[in-house]
Structures are given as structure tokens and as C-alpha cells.
Design a protein around this nucleic acid. Structure first.
Length: 640
RNA sequence: GCUGACGUAGCUCAGUCGGUAGAGCACCUGCAUGGUAAGCAGGAGGUCCCCGGUUCGAUCCCGGGCGUCAGCUCCA
């Protein structure tokens, strides 16, 4: 029989061959499984497909097979050490794998070493993995007798016509749909990382299981690199760097709300300035609207029915109020203030003011998940035929902003959620319009069914940072509902009243979250245009203080953010501090510079630019700020 | 919100088997007036998260609360 192998041509195999034979014939030792269309098959399966693709660890699907088997090795080791432990589910994740287990007595992270050692034995024993198809009755009987109630529940939840399979390695058998590696011995490097709580099937009414996390690689080197990246992420953690760089802080009495220090606010203002510089030319008009409204408004908007659990509610003089979690209802009131003409559309409104959301306490996470935030929020009121134009414009904003930070963007199209309002026909129209714009622009995207907002479908944008981590940031939402609920109208060309459509968008999203992401993306070493302190002046001795103050005034007048470090310390000491504070430029002023009217400039990271006239320094920096230059030293800078 | 762990100086952390605490960095002062990542010496700084309980005595043990962290769920 002939099998086509993608990238390797056709291979002739004897009848009854398995995929492992195919791999051996090709000398492709690194292949972990094969893909035939959408199906991933183990190497021990008989060859049936006419065309296959080899899956290695470098393929996401190959990696998944590898780590899925690692999860089984974990389960096998656990059952050896804790025979009474009950297994739930154990999938691969992007970073590794986990297994949800109900232990007879809860274990702690101190127990992981023993489990890891037993896993190493399972790997060393190099068990072949095999697959069995099994009837529902047999499966139920087997797992009931084995004392695995979660497996029994999983089987009971399967559809009647489902093919039930088990996988066996050594003495261990697990309910599993696969696919798996052919042998446990392929898992050369693995480590358990932590243990945390998790509910069976996400049900917080059920028992709390323990989720044991780990990761696995084909070699020790790759495992080490993985943990190096994790360490690097820890060094960049905005919750550590933010307070260290004096950008922001949190206080126990205001959980989820940041204190913005002067330096953090400088960064914040630079970002808002950037947003304004892009949106104002497109016609966005900035407003400020109330932040507390009577419940009546939230009933009109639908927030009372769909978002109440995420709002801070209060009572005053016997009347119920809610603090705004979004600007849209206020902007709708603003729109309805006067009679609007089609000539005003699209009417673009922007607001950078505070929003408050009652996030559940356990979900708060530094700046990345807060209760008090500010968005680069806009609402555009438009005629239905303008949807494409306005959404395309928003796409342009997303591109402009994320390009400025060298962050690639991925688009997610989120469709109607279960908890929603409005007629299905309008949802059909809204979804078709959004998807149409993406297709028209030829942009790749993934569809997230059921992830839309309660008032409309949306485009969510996921940015990738310098460490390859992904962050949900921008959102563009289409909304046919609020204009109806607020009874909004405009007078069209034909003199008739018509209902506008709304587009909501926040390109940086929450500025809090965005700054948190940027701190980690840049490891706190911001490009010049964002840096809270752009230049630090460093007079060598007291004799140059007066001159340094003059230079400071000059730089400040030129719009640069400057600090003067005139402390009674040696130059080396103050340079060290400037580096730790990640200031882009240090300008040293000694006797020579005073006499020549120059500055001895040092770039962050250690590059000495030599002496240059103050004027030249100013104009060079102004140019770099205006062009939003990403330097100095942007990518993956080593922290020391 | 749920499960678990943690909460000591501005930061990172030590310590007290129950007798009210210490280091490094940061900060302040003095000496040294200095040339590109730590000069020398000294000083100040604490409600050991909060409230109760046990105890002659609690930062330490117990209970409750708050906060943080790791997850679950949710999300900009």
C-alpha cells in the first residue's frame, strides 16, 4: 500500500503495517504521531489513511500528544503512591499538562517531588501504550469496580453513539479518547510545577479536586529553556516592577484600584495622548459623562438584568444608584439630547474617564484585573450602511496602535452569548456585518462562539508580547440593541426617523491592563516616548549644579521629562541608580561640558554617545519622541 | 465568590520550640568634590495585617475578618 507523506513524498508499505513502520522507513525519529486530515493517530495504529502528515514536538498537535501522555504518566504515578486517589480529567495545555485528582487526603506542593520521582520510574520502565475500544457497559463496569466515580460520570455524559476508548500503559488503564505517544519512555524531561484547586467540570457546588500541574519536553535543554522564560516573566512581573519603578501601588483598603504615582501617570498620559492623536483626526469628540446613575438608567440599558453582579450598587435618600461599569448608556443619553440629522453620522464620541466593575475578589490581579479602570472608550452612532466603514476604521486604529509597540495582533470574532437581549434577526445581521468586514479586509481570524457581549457580537484582539505571551486587549463591538432600548433616532435624508447602530470600541482596552502588559512587554525599560523620566542629569560635583539646573530648564521647556540627580554620591553610583530606574538617557555634566555647552550622553544599557551640544541633544530626543522610536534597547533586555 | 498557601522596616527576606525583633538594599547625616553600574562612617525607621480567645505573658497557638498569591469561574 502507498501512503503520501506531506513533505516527504510517497512511501510503499506492506499490508498490516503500522505508522511506526512508516516513520522508521523515513528515518523520522522525532515524529510522535501522524495527522490524517483532522484526525491525529498514534504510531501504533495500523496504516489506513492515504495521506498523512508527521507530527513532531514542534507542532502544536504533536506537543499535545506528548504532554497528554505525560498527564497519564502523572496519573499512573499517583495511583501507585495513592491507590485510593480518584482521577477526573488530565489534558495537555499550551504550556504543559495537568490532572484533576481527588486525593484521600489533600496533598501539598511538598508531595510533588515524590510523585515526580515515581513518574521518572514510569518513564524509565518505558511502557508501550495501547488503545482499546470498549462497550459502554464494560466501561461503566470497569471504572465502577476500579473506584473511579468521576470516570463513570464522564462515561455517562457521553453520547449514546460515542466510541469509548481506554488507554493502557503497564498496570495503568485510563478512560481517554487519546491520542497518545507509543511509549512512555519518550518523555525525557518532565517537572511538576504546582498544585491548585479545581472543580470537577467547573461546578463549584461539587467537590473541590486538586489540579496537579506539570510540563514535559523531549529534552532537558528544552525544559530548562521553558523555566528560564518563566523566570524572565517573573523578573518582568508588573506587580513587582511597577512599585519598584514608582509607577503605581495598591493599598489593602482599595482592592482592585490603583494609585497612580507621578511617574505612572506620565506614562498613562503619554498613552492617552497617543490615543487622542489618532482618534481626533478621525472626528472623535471627547466628552465626560456622569459616573453614578439611578437604577432606572441601568434598567433601560439592560445592565440591571445582565451586568448587575459586576456593578457597585448603592443607595442614597431611599433611591438606588449604580456606578458605571461602561460609558455606553451615558453616551446614548448624550446622543438623544437633541434631534440628530443623518448629516451628523457617524457621530463619534470618546471618553477616557473612570469605570468601576465589581470583579470577584479572587479574580483581581495587579493591573491586569482591576475594579477601577479607564478605557480609551468610544461610541460611534451610525447609519446601518456605515457599519463597514466604521468597523474598518477601528481595525486601522488597532493596527496603528499595536504596530507602535511591535506587538502582533490576533483577531477573535465572538458571537452571541447564551445570556443576551434582542431579536435573533438583529443578531444575525450584526454578526454577518462584523464577519463581512473581516472577510472584506482579508484578515485572518478565529471564531469564538458564545463569547459576545450581551448586547452584540464583537471582535476581540489578542496581542503577543516580547516573551510570546498573549493578552486580550482591544475590543470592537457592534450593537443594534442599545439604540432601540434608548429609543434613539436620527432624521434621515428622506425626512423619516430612523434608528442608528452603535459601534463600541476600546483599542488599548483598559489603560490599567494595557500599562500592566506594557511593563512586562518592555521589562520596565520603556521606549523614550513613554519613559516617565526621559533624561537624568548628572552633575559630577557641586560646581556644576547651577549649570545642570539651567540645562534642566532648557530640556523641560523643550517638553522633555527630566530629573536632576545632584546627590552627594560618585558618578558610578548615580549611573547605577539611573540604570536600575531604567532611564533612557543619562546626561553627565562636568567641568568640560560646562565650558563647552555640551552634555556627555549615555544611553540606557551602557552605550556612550559622547559629548554633544545641548541643542543637538534636545532636537534628537524630540525627533525620537515624535516618531515614537522604540529604543533604546527594546527587546528582551537582560535584567541585572 | 470557591479551594489552598501566605501576611515581620519603603523593598527582598531572616527570626522568636510563647518572654514585644534582625540583615541587605533604599532613605537621612557627616567626611571624601568625584568622569560612566555600589567610596567611607554613622543614623533613623516596626501596631510583626486587623479583631477576639487561650495564657502570668501572643508577632508566634486557636477562631473570625481583611488583603495578597496560585488556581477554578469570569473578563478590558
Amino acid at each position: 500500500m502507498r501512503v503520501d507523506v506531506v513533505g516527504a513524498g510517497a512511501v510503499e508499505l506492506p499490508e498490516g503495517a503500522v505508522y511506526a513502520d512508516l516513520v522508521a522507513r523515513l528515518g523520522a525519529e522525532q515524529a510522535l504521531a501522524v495527522a490524517a486530515g483532522d484526525q491525529v493517530l498514534e504510531l501504533f495504529r495500523p496504516v489506513t489513511a492515504a495521506s498523512v502528515r508527521l507530527l513532531r514536538f514542534t507542532d502544536a498537535k504533536g506537543r499535545q500528544v506528548f504532554r497528554h501522555t505525560a498527564a497519564h504518566v502523572l496519573a499512573q504515578a499517583v495511583k501507585r503512591l495513592y491507590p485510593k486517589a480518584q482521577l477526573a480529567i488530565g489534558p495537555a495545555t499550551d504550556e504543559g499538562f495537568f490532572y484533576d485528582i481527588l486525593f484521600p487526603e489533600p496533598i501539598s506542593s511538598a508531595d510533588l517531588a515524590a510523585i515526580e520521582a515515581e513518574m521518572a520510574r514510569v518513564v524509565a520502565e518505558d511502557h508501550p501504550v495501547s488503545r482499546q475500544e470498549i462497550s459502554r457497559q464494560d466501561a461503566l463496569a470497569w471504572f465502577t469496580q476500579a473506584g473511579e466515580p468521576f470516570k463513570v460520570a464522564l462515561i455517562e455524559a457521553l453520547r449514546d453513539d460515542a466510541v469509548i476508548t481506554t488507554y493502557r500503559q503497564g498496570e495503568f488503564t485510563d478512560l481517554c479518547r487519546g491520542p497518545h505517544l507509543a511509549r512512555t519512555g519518550l518523555i525525557k524531561a518532565l517537572r511538576l510545577t504546582n498544585v491548585a484547586g479545581a472543580y470537577f467540570q467547573g461546578n463549584d457546588q461539587g467537590p473541590m479536586l486538586q489540579r496537579v500541574y506539570g510540563t514535559a519536553f523531549p529534552s532537558d535543554d528544552e525544559l530548562e529553556r521553558h523555566f528560564f522564560l518563566i523566570e524572565e516573566a517573573k523578573r518582568r512581573d508588573h506587580r513587582r516592577l511597577g512599585p519598584e519603578l514608582d509607577l503605581f501601588s495598591f493599598h489593602d483598603v482599595a482592592p482592585g484600584f490603583a494609585f497612580w504615582h507621578p511617574k505612572g501617570l506620565a506614562l498613562y498620559e503619554a498613552l492617552v495622548g497617543f490615543s487622542r492623536s489618532l482618534q481626533q483626526p478621525l472626528g472623535y469628540q471627547e466628552v465626560s459623562t456622569p459616573w453614578i446613575y439611578k437604577t432606572e438608567l441601568w434598567q433601560t440599558s439592560g445592565h440591571a438584568a445582565h451586568f448587575k453582579d459586576n456593578m457597585f450598587l448603592m443607595e442614597a435618600e431611599g433611591e438606588a444608584f449604580g456606578v458605571k461599569p461602561m460609558n455606553c448608556p451615558g453616551h446614548c443619553l448624550l446622543f438623544s439630547e437633541t434631534t440628530r440629522s443623518y448629516r451628523e453620522l457617524p457621530l463619534r464620541i470618546a471618553e477616557y474617564g473612570p469605570l468601576t466593575r465589581r470583579e470577584r475578589s479572587g479574580t483581581l490581579h495587579g493591573l491586569l484585573r482591576v475594579r477601577g479602570m479607564h478605557q480609551d472608550d468610544t461610541h460611534t452612532f451610525l447609519a446601518p450602511e456605515q457599519i463597514e466603514e466604521v468597523v474598518a476604521e477601528a481595525l486601522g486604529l488597532v493596527d496603528a496602535i499595536y504596530e507602535a509597540f511591535a506587538m502582533p495582533i490576533e483577531i477573535h470574532f465572538s458571537t452571541r452569548p447564551a445570556d443576551r437581549m434582542g431579536e435573533e434577526a438583529l443578531w444575525d445581521r450584526a454578526e454577518a456585518a462584523l464577519e463581512g468586514v473581516l472577510k472584506e479586509a482579508g484578515r485572518p481570524y478565529v471564531t469564538d462562539p458564545g463569547e459576545g457581549a450581551f448586547y452584540g457580537p464583537k471582535l476581540d484582539f489578542v496581542a503577543t508580547d516580547a516573551l510570546g505571551r498573549r493578552w486580550q486587549v482591544a475590543t470592537v463591538q457592534l450593537d443594534f440593541q442599545l439604540p432601540i432600548r434608548f429609543d434613539l433616532h436620527y432624521i434621515d435624508r428622506d425626512g423619516r426617523q430612523k434608528t442608528p447602530v452603535m459601534v463600541h470600541h476600546a483599542i488599548m482596552g483598559s489603560l490599567e491592563r494595557f500599562i500592566g502588559v506594557l511593563v512586562e512587554h518592555f521589562a520596565g525599560a520603556f521606549p523614550l516616548w513613554l519613559a516617565p523620566v526621559q533624561v537624568r542629569l548628572l552633575p559630577i560635583s557641586e560646581a556644576e549644579h547651577e549649570s545642570a539646573q539651567g540645562v534642566r530648564a532648557t530640556l523641560q521647556a523643550a517638553g522633555l521629562r527630566v530629573e536632576l540627580d545632584g546627590r552627594n554620591e560618585k558618578v558610578g553610583y548615580r549611573i547605577r541608580h539611573a540604570e536600575k530606574d531604567k532611564v533612557p538617557y543619562v546626561a553627565v555634566i562636568g567641568q568640560r561640558e560646562v565650558e563647552a555647552g555640551t552634555l556627555a550622553v549615555r544611553e540606557r544599557g551602557g552605550r556612550d554617545l559622547g559629548a554633544m551640544p545641548v541643542k543637538d541633544f534636545v532636537s534628537e530626543l524630540q525627533h525620537k519622541v515624535a516618531s515614537r522610536w522604540l529604543g533604546p534597547g527594546h527587546h528582551a533586555e537582560e535584567s541585572r
